[in-house]
Every structure is written in C-alpha cells, then in structure tokens.
Amino acid sequence: MSRSYLFIPGNTPSMIQNLDVFDSDVIIIDFEDSVTSYDKDSARTLIKNFLSKYSYDEVEIFVRINSYDSRYFHDDINALANLDISGYVLPKASVKGIRMLNKLSNKPIIPIVESPMALLLVEDIAKEKNVVALIFGAEDYTKELGIKRTLEATEILYARSIIAITANAYNIDAIDTPYTNKDDDKGLLLDATNALNLGFTSKASIHPNQIDIINQVFAPSLEEITEAKRIVKKSEETNKGAFSLDGKMIDLPIIEKAKKVLEKAKKYNL
C-alpha cells in the first residue's frame, strides 16, 4: 500500500545518505542497471556498511539485485544477508528466478515484469510465495518488442492493464513503470493519472523530483477521504452488508474500498 518507489543507484554515497529525505514511500537501492559491472562490488560494500549503521522507520528499503541468471546474483544476496531491508526487487521476472530467490531468503519479493514472456506468465509470477507487488518495466518490455515508447503510451496499454488487473486480483501492489522524462512534470502527472485509472496502486521513479507528483496522484483526495469516512460510519451505524447513501447502493466491496482509503489516509497523515 505504498504510493511511490524511488530507484537510487547503489554506488552513490550522496544519494544513499539522503535516501530518507525524498518523501518516497519506498526506496529501491539499485545493484542492477545503474551500477556498472566494475562498480558492483563497491555498491555492495557501501550498502552493507551503510545499512549496518543506519536504519529507517519512515521509509521502506528494497534492493534491486541482479537477475537470477547473472554472475552477480549470489554475491548480491550474500551482501544483503542480515541487513534490515524490506525485501528484494527482482529484475527480469520469472517463476524460476523467484523460486531461486525464495530458496535463499524468505523476504518479500517485487518482480519486474519487463518481457513479453513475463507478461504472458504474469499470473503465475503473482502467485509465487513472497511476491508482494509487481513492477512494470516498460523500457525493457518495449525494447524486446522492438517498438518505440510514445507520449500517449498506447503501445503499453495492454501490458499495463494485464499487470494492474493481475496484481489487484491477487491483492498485491501494482507499481507502474517510471516516467523517464525527469523535467516534464505535466507529462508525469498525466502518465501517473493514466496508470491510476488503469488500477495501478503506485508508481516507480528514477528521479527524486518526481516523488511529490506521484504521491499526490496515488494518495486519496480529500473528497475521497470524506466520502470514505461517511461510508464507513454509515456501515458501522447500520450494521448491514448493503445500504443506501445519497441514493446510491453501498455494498461490501465499496465498504472495503472505503476502509482502504482511510487506511491509506492514516498511513500518509492526510
């Protein structure tokens, strides 16, 4: 139930030192794409030392490790053993990769669905043990399809829809792909709103300056909070599974949804 997931390269002390100031609900420390092969070991050392000394209450920390079939996978896991992290982000999502990770750790896993094959198997991926969310990785996905990204994002509409539906069906978070133009706030707002309307619960980001907009889009609005309060109050007063409010029928799914809104509002101090 987080709104924002911010990737921070694992080899940048200045960013790591400030990971809790960017207002992202979740930080994903990256060992994969943003860390070159000759810097993988220094990233592991930095993060091991840093997280051994500092802990955080207000932000969850995940680490994107290298994929299960890379030569870095086991070293990444070993470096993170005994550290107080919330879980792993696993690139190139596959059932095999998740199972391999589950053999080495019992921590939550967020796979990145970033290939046509992963999309076809997304339900199997979502069902695996310890999977708590799905991230859509549109850059690699479109690269594999050999298609270009566009502002309208029609080329990823189907993939987005499937991932959001699957995550919601299995009651796990649906995390949308990052919006890569870091200086385009209007574009980000539109892109995040589109993702929200497709059923995503949150969005990943690769730049801290995007977090405010993402948090704003994926947080319940004041109107939604007020409405949710009324629904929950009436449901408690009537003690019925279904009732009428302002001429509209309210039933259990709507009550549950309202409770989620209030839970989110409480979590984010709204």
Binding site: V21, F22, D23, D183, H207
Partner: peptide, 11 residues
C-alpha cells in the same frame, strides 16, 4: 535548482 536536495529545501 533541479538538485533534489535543493528542491526539498525549497519545498
């Protein structure tokens, strides 16, 4: 500034 720390201070 576009520096995230500067942006946070300004916010």
């Amino acid at each position: 500034t576009k520096n995230p720390i500067g942006v946070k201070i300004a916010k």
